[in-house]
């Protein structure tokens, strides 16, 4: 198994007026290809900050970050955008769909930035919408979809560019438990195909549907353990 993510001694501070808030205080961990990792911790533990740095949406103050073996250092915004598009897929708690675009158009966006032609974009987007069970809803606008459906569109969008790693930040935070399990069922199926997925969550049951849990506390890893995965399909009717 190849190492998809490797970080060494990662530090991150935020300047809050005259005070500095040290959020990440030397994080070391790695994730192999095909892993499904939950990152847990209380509010302010640094889990979202870590995910943002891994997602190249934010920059660490110090430390080393290797993504698919490539050292991520001193990236300008253009290059960072290219890397995000090529290597990473994002799933957000608030779905972050573009409201005036249909589900299909939302899913095609990463491919558009890759320069894929229109026909191919639509073919691929439809394939992933079908995979998340939303083929019939492809031409609906986000405000015509339920929370679970929106998140499944977001999952399809994260998948469509066939990234190496998918980063999910509280992906079930805005969903009821039944819908959360349905979404996790989709995530597990994607993971079964070999995708590396990192899920930031504060929900224990969701974390136990992953294969490994990393607990963060006050900016350091408190515990990193492999667990027996609970299949979400057992809870989905």
């Amino acid at each position: 198994m190849a190492t998809m993510i490797e970080i060494k001694d990662l530090h991150k501070s935020y300047q809050m007026g005259k005070n500095s808030l040290h959020v990440l205080k030397g994080i070391d961990f790695s994730a192999e290809e095909g892993e499904l990792v939950a990152i847990m911790g209380s509010s302010g533990s640094g889990k979202s900050t870590l995910l943002n740095i891994l997602g190249l949406l934010d920059v660490a103050d110090s430390g080393e970050y290797l993504l698919d073996g490539k050292l991520i250092k001193n990236l300008n915004e253009t290059k960072a955008a290219k890397y995000r598009n090529k290597f990473l897929g994002f799933i957000f708690q608030s779905f972050n769909l573009i409201n005036y675009k249909s589900a299909l158009e939302n899913v095609t966006l990463p491919l558009y930035y890759q320069g894929v032609n229109r026909k191919e974009r639509q073919r691929k987007a439809m394939k992933y919408l079908e995979m998340v069970g939303l083929k019939e809803w492809s031409h609906h606008l986000p405000n015509e979809l339920s929370g679970g459906q929106k998140q499944r569109v977001a999952i399809a969008r994260a998948m469509v560019g066939e990234p190496k790693v998918i980063l999910a930040d509280e992906l079930t935070g805005a969903l009821d438990s039944t819908t959360s399990y349905e979404v996790m069922d989709v995530i597990q199926k994607i993971n079964d195909q070999g995708n590396t997925i990192l899920v930031v969550t504060h929900e224990n049951d969701i974390a136990h549907m992953c294969k490994r849990i990393i607990y963060l506390k006050d900016g350091v890893i408190e515990e990193d353990k492999k667990i027996k995965q609970v299949r979400a399909s057992e809870y989905v009717q």
């Binding site: 997602g55 915004e77 253009t78 955008a81 995000r84 598009n85 090529k86 972050n96 769909l97 930035y113």
Partner: peptide, 16 residues
């Protein structure tokens, strides 16, 4: 702003 953030997260470069 948020939409621009989403687009950039998905890989649209600043020039675009």
């Amino acid at each position: 702003t948020k939409e621009i953030g989403i687009r950039r997260a998905l890989g649209e470069d600043p020039w675009s």
